[in-house]
Design a protein around this nucleic acid. Structure first.
Lengths: 204, 204
DNA sequence: TGAATTTTTGACTCGCTGTTCAACGGATGG
DNA sequence: CCATCCGTTGAACAGCGAGTCAAAAATTCA
């Protein structure tokens, strides 16, 4: 019995892990297709095809297409928030901002959850959209806080914090439009160079 | 006969002007709907509805949906190129860049051809796409040239020209994602402030 | 006014794509 | 070796939305 229970537990856990991995695979696939064809051109079949599945299978893992898109957004936004959380508070504002931005950029250029930031939130129903927007706002606020602190400390020039935040995040979110992973710059290099550029632009 | 010919000529010209105006109206309508619903959510019916027309009418002015989108892109890109052309060569690099960017921003935030820059070019067939890309490249090259000149003149800091160009244009192209025309900032104010921010970031 | 021309309509077709579901195979556990 | 459950299939359906077109309406011109 105990043995049986453990065994059952093991099975379930292994299954669950497999399941989660599959979900992740689908999300990545969706991210890549999204980047290639643009939101307007993505079909469930495209997403499935890329994994050698049929579109029917996708519905075993996700409620519907919107759910799939939503999870993509969620994951991408969560990754950026994670970068914010991770930034070592011991660093001065410029160093800290650099870390946050690099994390954000890596999340966007990496394979994990291809640049969904770009796609329109308009296609997602209000309830789900609110959650994404709330997370995104929290991230933006975090970035602005660092900029503000930098100005007060005298490390950064006296810019309009709100606008500067928008400008920096816009510059970053735009990266997928021109960045080619097969090009000479690795994701890490882009992250480092772009983050350096931004922080350098703020510094005085 | 001569009279008849002249009269016919007049008629044709007036008609053509009306026709062109209508086309422009449709493009503007498409631009606005595009901004509201995102490329994935735009239907021909939406575009027509906004003007009190039926979608059938649109096909009198445009070949198909792709053609409509293409013309939107064309107009927006042309406007930015125009800003580049207009920039007074007598100005120093920083002033000239400021003028170009302001023109570009006004084109994006204005009513004329609402932010199509945002939407994916992927939905447009290769032949047409090439033309848009060529124009966009010409614009980007123009901006980079100014940046380079500024660096050589010593007005701008020694940044990576390519990356700086991408960053600046990204920051600008992202504006429609957060800018609300009904907010406190007029399009001209946004243009002035953002352009100022960019040029200030480059200046050394 | 009447004829000619431009513009708009609205109903129709048709392909595409999201979604469902009953059935199937394959792995897992006993 | 059987029973069970999981994951996948592929066929079917439904609805949406692009595009068509003959006919109607509006406009222009003589």
């Amino acid at each position: 019995m105990r043995h049986g229970a453990v065994s059952a537990g093991r099975r379930t856990r292994a299954r669950a892990a497999r399941n989660a991995w599959r979900r992740g695979e689908i999300l990545r696939s969706a991210g890549r297709v999204l980047q290639e064809r643009g939101l307007a051109g993505v079909t469930m079949e495209h997403v499935a095809e890329r994994l050698g599945l049929t579109k029917g299978s996708l519905y075993y893992y996700f409620e519907d297409k919107e759910d799939l898109l939503y999870q993509c957004h969620l994951q991408a936004t969560a990754a950026s928030l994670e970068a914010l959380r991770r930034a070592r508070p011991s660093l001065p504002p410029d160093g800290r901002l650099r870390e946050v931005l690099m994390g954000h950029i890596r999340g966007i250029t990496g394979e994990e959850h291809g640049a969904i930031m770009l796609t329109d939130l308009e296609t997602i129903a209000p309830a789900r959209r609110r959650r994404i927007v709330a997370m995104r706002d929290r991230f933006e606020r975090g970035v602005r806080d660092i900029i503000r602190e930098g100005i007060e400390t005298g490390v950064f020039a006296r810019v309009d914090v709100r606008l500067a935040g928008f400008a920096i995040l816009g510059a970053i979110n735009w990266i997928p439009k021109w960045y080619d992973p097969r090009g000479p710059l690795s994701p890490d290099e882009v992250a480092a160079q772009m983050a350096g550029l931004m922080v350098g632009a703020l510094r005085r």
